[in-house]
Amino acid sequence: MAAPLLEVRDLVMHFPVKSRGVIARTVGHVKAVDGVSFTVEAGQSLGLVGESGCGKTTTGRLITRLQKPTSGQILFEGQDIAQAGPRVLKPLRREIQMIFQDPYTSLNPRQTVGEIVGAPLVIHKLVPASQRLARVQELLEVVGLNPEHYNRYPHEFSGGQRQRIGIARALTLQPKLLVADEPVSALDVSIQAQVINLMQDLQREFNIAFLFIAHDLSIVRHFCPEVAVMYLGKIVEKAPRDELYEHPKHPYTKALLSAVPNIEQAVLGGRRERIRLQGDVPSPINPPSGCRFRTRCWKAQDICATTEPPLQKVGAGADVAACHFPEQ
């Protein structure tokens, strides 16, 4: 069997914390990502959900190698790029691209749309200068923008249109994997759906794999057939979409789902069980021993404080969860 497009094994990212003394010593580490493993097959999409500070954005930045992981492997088409240097990475940058959250700050205001979208072509010297404009216009058309607008500046576009520019830029090099970090959370509701639909069309048309990072469970559910839930630097549950949303196994997933406001149930009654987590997420500098969720978990027992539950198969399906007492 061929290697998957992307395989991540035991990915770890620890950021040092400096002391406040005269001489700054490293007194601890922010364990932003702490042993994360998953695979993404070509043309597929995996959703990575979690609340702020769970390490989902850092994971995305490690896979695109905007940052170098502390340890672990990132196998892209079988090649480990976790510690690779710039020379190895340059050709790979064509294959892995990123879409950023904020379409207002992630586009250079002094460059025209044509320059932004065409920049990767210049850097990688892929298309002769004479054909560059044609390629840029083709890309603008693909993402639903007027190809004649290539010499306009980002501020002349609305938020949704800017995110389309960001997507066009990511598509320029025909990547195999797109890491989308909260691609729609800065947009208005009616515009979010436009961008989601666009990304879905592009995925089908160009067979692009997506790592879709978001805090919004309902958007992830719509986009990804497989979803992983992160909490304090670890994946606590990973399952096919229907399994995860209808029969969550990990208590945190359950709590997360029950916190999402839902029109139908609120209006028509038939309320689900409401679970309210107490307090805040603990500090990633000193995460709780054993299971990291135990401090907020209503099912926690003694074993949860002493033994870290491994991510293992729960139930009949493909659902894996890291919990001593998973829901059945």
Binding site: A193, Q194, I196, L217, S218, Y245, N262, Q265
Partner: peptide, 18 residues
């Protein structure tokens, strides 16, 4: 209403953006 991807809505229906 139609452009919201609800957690219970069918994923087979495409989102209908405005």
């Amino acid at each position: 209403i139609q452009s919201i991807p609800d957690v219970t809505r069918s994923v087979d229906l495409p989102l209908r953006p405005i």
